[in-house]
Design a protein around this nucleic acid. Structure first.
Lengths: 163, 163
DNA sequence: GAGAAATTGTCCTGTACGGTAACAATCACT
DNA sequence: AGTGATTGTTACCGTACAGGACAATTTCTC
């Protein structure tokens, strides 16, 4: 076994990733409050935007969460007027999930919030450095074995300090 | 307001940071189970290692958490035989927190776990790329305004999928 | 086709956790 | 000496998550 290194936490890539990831997520959560949704709602909406009519089960599987959680998420979205459960044309047990017009209006705003968050986070890096960082993170993410664009924190709301 | 970009989540730096940060933290949590502690315990131990005898209040302040949480953390550590509350020499209300010998044995093992986690995470990047990534993350962290080496997730255990 | 097994969405229950308020003991200031 | 502030702790409450159970339907098996 290699002997443990003496680096402080602030010089460890894994610690920095966790720290910054938590920081961004919290910030994003705060900024989304104005739109009346949470990050996991945003993730679900994004997923729905690229393919409607799927069942709750399919959605849950794609996002790596349990069906039960999807029930709650869709309850939220439906009450918020952003999604609707229609009858599934082929399976009368299942629901076909669709976005509403309101969702199509809100989604770009949420994306703009994400853009603003990213911009604020990356202040201090120039264009080249941003591209470098993005590319490196993509390589690491690729190797981590996670499905692309699926956030492991979807199983549960992201903790928001001081809220 | 700039128009929202159409990039998928997997091409957004903030999303990748959050995704990877969550991933590493979960992995670290899992790996730490063998040592009988959690990441927030680890953070506290690391902090204690570079200065014992402080009061719970001082520790809580340094780590950005509430006194009440520190009570629970120290209860855990004390029960685990890793820290002890001694009488404070100057203030009879306060406790002076010290590490035990067991902690001094365990801490390097925990650091080794962190090292192993980092190594696994960064497989796929060569030495130069690792240095680049670390430097970029440090710059971003510097600008984020967080105290160095303090994890915002200390206020609460990091969620561990599937546990 | 008829019955058995699996699937979908939902609900209920227990459990754990975070945050607020309150408390006794002690210190600091006047 | 007395009043207010500080330290550590406990009790309380509301929320969130995992597990199992459930009716309605589909799919498989014979």
């Amino acid at each position: 076994m290699p002997e443990p290194s003496n680096r402080p936490l602030g010089e460890r890539t894994n610690f920095l990733l966790s720290q910054l990831g938590f920081h961004t997520a919290s910030r994003f959560t705060e900024r989304l409050v104005g739109l009346g949704i949470q990050p996991n709602h945003f993730g679900l909406l994004m997923h729905l935007a690229q393919g409607e009519g799927r069942t709750q089960q399919q959605l849950a599987e794609a996002l790596g969460i349990h069906r039960k959680v999807m029930v709650g998420l869709l309850d939220d979205l439906e009450q918020r007027g952003l999604a609707e459960r229609r009858r599934h044309p082929a399976d009368r047990r299942a629901h076909a999930i669709h976005l509403t017009e309101a969702a199509r209006t809100l989604l770009p705003e949420a994306v703009a919030v994400a853009d603003a968050e990213e911009e604020e986070l990356l202040t201090g890096l120039d264009g080249d450095e941003r591209r470098q960082l993005l590319a490196l993170l993509q390589r690491v993410a690729e190797h981590s074995g996670h499905p692309r664009g699926v956030h492991p924190g979807m199983r549960g709301k992201i903790a928001m300090p001081g809220a």
